[in-house]
Amino acid sequence: STHNELEKNRRAHLRLCLERLKVLIPLGPDCTRHTTLGLLNKAKAHIKKLE
């Protein structure tokens, strides 16, 4: 159905954006896999440090 396709595309776009963010944020050497929340929290902390 159309709704399923739209949802699939939305999730794919979100995944792509999170992958791009992961490249930009210093995550530390001990981190190989992150939850979305963990990645967003690290991004928030990094932005605050830059301010």
Score class of each variant (00 low, 15 high):
Thr2Lys: 11
Thr2Ser: 05
His3Asp: 12
His3Trp: 03
His3Leu: 07
Asn4Thr: 13
Glu5Met: 13
Glu5Ile: 08
Glu5Ala: 06
Leu6Ala: 09
Glu7Phe: 07
Glu7Gly: 10
Lys8Val: 06
Lys8Ala: 05
Arg10Leu: 10
Arg11Pro: 10
Arg11Tyr: 11
Arg11Lys: 14
Ala12Asp: 05
Ala12Pro: 10
His13Phe: 10
His13Lys: 14
Leu14Met: 08
Leu14Phe: 13
Leu14Pro: 10
Arg15Val: 02
Arg15Gly: 05
Arg15Glu: 04
Leu16Cys: 07
Leu16Pro: 09
Cys17Ser: 02
Cys17Tyr: 07
Leu18Val: 08
Leu18Asp: 02
Leu18Asn: 00
Glu19Asn: 14
Glu19Met: 02
Arg20Asp: 00
Arg20Gly: 01
Arg20Pro: 01
Arg20Tyr: 00
Arg20Cys: 01
Arg20Val: 01
Leu21Tyr: 01
Leu21Ser: 00
Leu21Ala: 03
Lys22Pro: 01
Lys22Cys: 00
Lys22Arg: 09
Val23Phe: 08
Val23His: 15
Leu24Gly: 04
Leu24Pro: 00
Ile25Phe: 09
Ile25Tyr: 06
Ile25Cys: 12
Ile25Ala: 03
Pro26Asp: 06
Pro26Trp: 04
Leu27Val: 11
Leu27Pro: 15
Leu27Cys: 03
Gly28Arg: 13
Gly28Phe: 12
Gly28Glu: 05
Gly28Cys: 09
Pro29Asn: 10
Pro29Asp: 05
Asp30Thr: 13
Asp30Gln: 13
Asp30Leu: 14
Cys31Leu: 11
Cys31Ser: 14
Thr32Val: 15
Thr32Asn: 05
Arg33Gln: 10
Arg33Asn: 05
Arg33Leu: 05
His34Met: 10
Thr35Cys: 12
Thr36Ala: 13
Thr36Cys: 13
Thr36Gln: 08
Thr36Gly: 13
Leu37Trp: 13
Leu37Glu: 06
Leu37Phe: 13
Leu37Tyr: 09
Gly38Thr: 10
Gly38Lys: 12
Leu40His: 00
Leu40Met: 10
Leu40Ile: 11
Asn41Met: 03
Lys42Gln: 05
Lys42Glu: 01
Lys42Ile: 07
Lys42Asp: 00
Lys42Met: 04
Ala43His: 01
Ala43Tyr: 00
Lys44Glu: 03
Lys44Trp: 05
Ala45Lys: 11
Ala45Leu: 10
Ala45Gly: 05
Ile47Met: 07
Lys48Arg: 07
Lys48Leu: 01
Lys49Ser: 07
Leu50Glu: 02
Leu50Trp: 12
Leu50Ala: 03
Glu51Asn: 15
Glu51Ile: 04
Glu51Thr: 15
Glu51Val: 14
